[in-house]
Amino acid sequence: MFHINLVAKCKKNDRKAQMQLYDKYCQGMFCVAMRFLKNEDDAEDVLQEAFIKAFQKIEQYKGDVTFGAWLKKIVVNRSLDFLKVKKAHMVALDETYMQVAQDDDWTVEDGITVQEVKMAMEGLSEKYRLVLQLYLMEGYDHDEISEILGITNTTCRTRLLRGKGQLKEVLNERFITKKSRLD
Rank of each mutant, 00 (worst) to 15 (best):
Leu132Tyr: 12
Ser79Val: 04
Thr152Tyr: 02
Glu44Lys: 15
Ile52Phe: 10
Thr66Val: 02
Met137Arg: 03
Gln166Leu: 14
Gln27Ile: 05
Asn5Trp: 00
Cys31Gly: 05
Lys86Glu: 14
Gln27Phe: 04
Ala101Met: 07
Thr154Phe: 02
Lys57Asp: 08
Lys179Asn: 06
Cys31Glu: 06
Ile52Trp: 01
Leu161Asn: 15
Gly28Asn: 06
Lys84Trp: 13
Arg174Met: 07
Val100Lys: 08
Val75Met: 01
Glu138His: 08
Leu149Ala: 03
Met19Val: 05
Trp70Cys: 03
Val114Ala: 11
Cys26Pro: 00
Ile58Glu: 02
Cys26Ser: 09
Gly165Ala: 12
Glu109Phe: 09
Lys118Gln: 09
Ala54Glu: 01
Arg35Cys: 11
Tyr128Met: 14
Trp106Phe: 15
Glu49His: 11
Ala101Gln: 09
Met137Pro: 00
His89Asp: 11
Ala69Val: 09
Glu44Ile: 11
Leu21Met: 05
Gln99Ala: 04
Cys31Ser: 07
Val65Ser: 15
Asp45His: 11
Asp94Phe: 02
Leu149Gln: 06
Glu169Ala: 14
Thr158Ile: 06
Ala50Ile: 02
Ile52Cys: 07
Tyr61Lys: 01
Leu167Tyr: 13
Ile148Gln: 06
Leu171Gly: 10
Leu6Asp: 05
Leu132Phe: 10
Ala8Pro: 00
Lys168Glu: 10
Lys168Gly: 12
Gln166Asn: 15
Lys164Thr: 15
Asn172Lys: 13
Trp106Lys: 14
Asp23Pro: 00
Phe30Cys: 01
Arg157Met: 14
Ala43Met: 10
Glu59Ala: 06
Asp14Gln: 07
Ile145Met: 10
Tyr128Phe: 15
Asp143Ile: 10
Tyr22Ala: 06
Arg78Gln: 15
Gly111Met: 02
Cys31Ala: 09
Val117Leu: 11
Leu130Thr: 14
Arg129Lys: 15
Tyr25Ser: 03
Thr155Phe: 04
Gln102Met: 12
Lys57Pro: 00
Asp110Tyr: 07
Ser180Cys: 00
Val76Phe: 03
Asp143Lys: 13
Ser79His: 08
Asp14Tyr: 07
Leu136Trp: 13
Thr155His: 01
Thr66Leu: 08
Val85Gly: 12
Arg174Pro: 00
Leu132Trp: 12
His3Asn: 07
Asn153Trp: 08
Lys127Ile: 12
Phe30Val: 03
Tyr25Cys: 01
Leu134Trp: 06
Asn5Val: 05
Thr154Pro: 00
Asn77Phe: 07
Lys38His: 15
Asp141Ala: 10
Glu40Trp: 08
Leu160Pro: 07
Glu147Asp: 13
Glu169Asn: 14
Phe82Val: 01
Gly28Tyr: 00
Leu93Ala: 08
Leu171Cys: 10
Gly63Pro: 11
Val108Phe: 13
Glu109Lys: 13
Cys26Arg: 12
Asp103Lys: 12
Thr107Phe: 09
Thr113Met: 03
Glu147Lys: 14
Glu109Asn: 12
His3Glu: 12
Leu83Lys: 13
Val7Asn: 04
Lys72Met: 02
Ala120Val: 11
Arg159Cys: 09
Lys9Thr: 02
Asn153Thr: 09
Ala92Pro: 03
Phe175Pro: 00
Arg35Lys: 12
Gly111Ala: 01
Leu21Gln: 03
Met34Ala: 03
Phe51Trp: 05
Cys10Gln: 01
Thr66Ile: 01
Val7Pro: 04
Ser180Trp: 05
Ile52Asp: 04
Gly63Gln: 12
Gln27Trp: 02
Val75Ile: 09
